[in-house]
Write a protein that binds this DNA or RNA. Structure first.
Lengths: 201, 201
DNA sequence: CACGATTTGTACCGAGCGGTAGGCTTGGCC
DNA sequence: GGCCAAGCCTACCGCTCGGTACAAATCGTG
């Protein structure tokens, strides 16, 4: 980060990262295919040629916007998982996820899910990008829980991979619920139930 | 079901319900907005004017196709929940859901989720239809688990509504995973973990 | 076997899509 | 202050979208 070195020529009238965040919001709310160029440029406050000269294409714009979104998501996930025990790590992950899904400074739900689970054949790459992002988050979970397994910190008979998949699936299901208007409290109550699965028996 | 009473005029060359199922598959694979009229008519084996004279519009076609899909889903869910205990009902629900999400006689995942979580503003109704369908399934779960609560069949400190939301969210998360290629076994392993939450303590 | 009713197929419509050409504007630099 | 690189903006491109007009084809019925 930091200011770009200014070269000759007319300077940009917009900040690239600010504008990417605005684009992410539109993709988030309407999905990749439902986000028209007019909606995007309108929300970004720039016009079409600026968008194309800066980002190249709608798909590349999406990738840039999603990368930014995804990096902060993974960072939040990793931070949550720094808790000392597997139980606390999972609880922190699920609680912060539920909060994020229902925060009011951005659209409800999760860009990785709303962006485009199913697309027309020519946009199939978009679904793959999103799936790869979700898989990366799940990998971070697997990593953390594998460590827990080595430390004897998992309940008997529970594998790290299955537990990670369970946690991730629940969080994605909460994203679906949040997109349909579920409240923070409703999701947290579901987390309460889920955590029972992580207690030793 | 049963043959329509034949009236005067040229008879239809296709069966309405067969053709609806084909349409559902296309919506399922590509989402509402990703399913073009050409893809739909191609898969349905009929041409555009036949589609419009029979179903009226793309949106009405989707509603008819989704209704059919949703009815069978709810029927399967209710059948699974006829098990005598809450635990068995939830297990049957989640296992049959995981099987359905990865069956190979139709696209992976769930039409209620892939159809269009996020749409362009003019198709916002589609997201609402899908959300209403998912809510109906969740209501069936709430109903069954409320009965369990009255029968003292729920673990202490677990509410029917929260438990239903948890089960439904997990199933929707599995749909997201399945759409990205998760296998039946991977989902079932996640169910194994989830069921621990339903055991008494 | 002609008539009216209904479906089918071809060929088309306006609108909006993602993407671009080219002239105007704004700055750094000598 | 004149030159020129880079960004901005209006207006446009071809294409595909969802949706339709119209005529040929196919049935029950008199």
């Amino acid at each position: 980060m930091g200011t770009e070195t200014q070269t000759a020529g007319r300077p940009r009238a917009f900040d690239e990262e600010t504008v990417l965040d605005r684009a992410a919001e539109v993709f988030w709310r309407h999905g990749y295919e439902g986000a028209s160029l007019s909606a995007l440029t309108g929300a970004m406050g720039i016009n079409r040629p600026s968008l194309y000269s800066t980002f190249g294409s709608k798909e590349q714009l999406f990738r840039r916007a999603f990368d930014r979104y995804h990096e902060t998501q993974v960072a939040k996930a990793r931070a949550a998982m720094e808790q000392p025990t597997a139980y606390a790590a999972i609880e922190a992950f699920l609680r912060s996820s539920a909060d994020g899904l229902t925060a009011d400074d951005h659209p409800a739900g999760c860009l990785s899910v709303q962006g485009g689970l199913a697309c027309s054949p020519e946009n199939a790459r978009i679904s793959e990008v999103l799936a790869a992002g979700r898989a990366a988050t799940e990998s971070a979970l697997v990593e953390r829980l594998s460590r827990a397994a080595r430390e004897g910190d998992l309940p008997d008979g529970v594998e790290a991979r299955s537990l990670a998949r369970f946690v991730m699936a629940l969080s994605e299901g909460h994203a679906v619920h949040a997109a349909a208007g579920a409240s923070r409290e409703e999701l947290q109550a579901s987390v309460d139930v889920a955590l029972r699965a992580v207690l030793p028996r």
